[in-house]
Amino acid sequence: MESSSHEHIISYAKLFGVLCSLLSFTAITIGVSRMDLGALNIWVAILIAACKASFILLFFMHLHYETRLLKITFVGTIGCLAILIGFVFWDISFR
């Protein structure tokens, strides 16, 4: 059986470090949103949100330490979501 995160202990210090990065990302996203970058604003906001989401998933949710099976199923889900987004926008942009 593959080793699971059940045995992996993440130190308080590391978790606190992740929290600090998440708070800094929040400050950055607020700061950037007050600048006028035109159409780029929304993309920067989504990019920063994706970075924050990755930190939460990898460390708070232990995904970094999980089995390959869990990682593959997670990436598969995001892949399905990406296909859904792709086809919806493909549809609406040619109406």
Partner: peptide, 17 residues
Amino acid sequence: HLVDLIWVFIFPLFYLI
């Protein structure tokens, strides 16, 4: 954490645009 994760996207999309 998932609830937190969803909020991470709600915040910029509704409050920061």
